[in-house]
Amino acid sequence: MPDLLQSEVLPETSDNVLDIRDLSINYGTPRGELQALRHVSMSIGKKKIVGIVGESGCGKSTLISAIIRLMASNATVQSGEILFKDQDLLGLKEKQMRALRGIDISMVFQDPMQTHNPVLTIGRQMVDIQYRDKLSKANKKKRAAGMLALVGIPDPEARLNQYPYEFSGGMRQRIAIAMALMAKPDLLIADEPTTALDATLEVQIIKRLEELQDEIGCSILFISHHLGVIAELCDEVVVMYAGEVIEQGSVRDVFHNPAHPYTAALLKCDPGHIKEKTRNLPTIPGEVPDLVDLPSGCIYQQRCTKGFARCQSERPAFRQINGSHGVACHLTETDLSKETSQQNEEGITS
């Protein structure tokens, strides 16, 4: 019966694995309600890799914790829904949610050094997480070894008997990925999986993720503040600032034609972009606004170099500018009208 009800309420089934609509989350703090996420909407298509970029404190982690429903106790959902395969995760009972975690949605955390239990062997941990399957222990072990081989750990059978401390950081992160992918989930959430690693290992992990995504056919939500990694790995990118999605689109659109001044500034700040040696790197002056006491109007206006009167009074709505590329900025409305008129003219002349 509940299934019937849901199909009535929902519109036609989409091609997206994950659809987040108008999600707002507050944290109760002694100073008042901290509005960590405000009207966040985003989606992840089947077999797509979507990256989220943003400075620390922009709400990336809150968003992930809401998806897997592991929110802090002082968090409250103000509005919105998180549709995973057309099922609202926010309405699920804890028991139903637990059945999803690790099977349909799994996660790789930031710090590979603290992901594993230090007193159990890797093999034991990899067998334990298959507790839902009715395979024999030997078969589970075989499967674990197969996953280790898949992420490029040499000599996997012997390695199963080793403890986490006997592996290097890069290997531990690959084991974490192997464990997350063991049940062939539909969605893998990777929270800054390479920040704790060196450049050469970062490349290894990214390559491995790409290959596995190909093989298993899952979607990946990849969180990072390393713009280079996002550019290389992801199909689409979501830019967040102070709890809002301010720009979203294909990696190529966003990185080549950033429409929001914040995205443009962020890209300019990346020293990877600057080829000549300089002792004065670009920065974004100012601070992220206080999320307990939000300014009116655009969330970025205090740091924006292109702001005008309207930005202080009116919050810009998120709107598509072309195809899948969307942005929340008043500037683009005027720019857009110019551009479309230009395009029309061109269309007429050609």
Binding site: E202, H226, G228, A231, V251, R252, F255, H256, G272, H273
Partner: peptide, 15 residues
């Protein structure tokens, strides 16, 4: 191994 913030960057990758 230093990824560039450009999706079209030609990468010389040595793994």
């Amino acid at each position: 191994a230093n990824p560039e913030p450009d999706p079209d960057a030609k990468l010389m990758r040595i793994e």
